[in-house]
């Protein structure tokens, strides 16, 4: 495993949460838990009652081709979650720009990513077509002031 801080894939200025992320089931019961990890098949909306104490949500991508985590991230952000949203697992260079658009602000890939490739990927798109969780103004709105 790669330390996300060392890998530099954290786009937040607050101090990282050091608590281990617990399962969704455990999180509901452990009233002092701050960090949770959700798996692809789990309903992220189960976390919505706990947004005020959540500091870190890890969304696991066991395989990069399974895109359920993208919806999970947007749903959290749409519900007002402002804590750290970390993509973990099979997280690759060519997916992180899309993940960031869905609201992820930290990445803990299983394999170390080439920093140059990451920078290229994140600076690739001059603009975006859709409004998502990253707050970028879509082309639709840029066209009409």
């Amino acid at each position: 495993m790669v330390d996300p801080a060392q890998n530099g894939l954290r786009f937040r200025t607050d101090a990282p949460v050091s608590d281990p992320a617990v399962t969704v089931e455990a999180f509901a019961e452990q009233t002092n838990a701050l960090a949770v990890r959700i798996e692809p098949g789990e309903d992220v909306r189960l976390l919505l009652p706990f947004l005020d104490r959540l500091r870190l949500v890890e969304v696991n991508f066991p395989s990069f081709g399974d895109g359920r985590g993208y919806s999970a991230a947007r749903i959290l952000r749409e519900a007002g979650y402002t804590g750290e949203l970390r993509a973990v697992g099979d997280v690759l260079v060519d997916q992180i720009a899309y993940m960031k658009r869905c609201g992820f602000d930290a990445f803990q890939p299983d394999e170390l990513l080439d920093r140059g490739d990451v920078e290229n990927a994140l600076s690739r798109w001059p603009d975006v077509y859709q409004p998502t969780a990253d707050g970028r103004v879509p082309i639709w709105n840029l066209r009409h002031g």
């Binding site: 895109g67 993208y70 859709q130 639709w140």
Partner: peptide, 13 residues
Amino acid sequence: RQWSSFHPEFSYL
């Protein structure tokens, strides 16, 4: 077309 192009949530359906 524009909405679906590079849609970040729906590229790994």
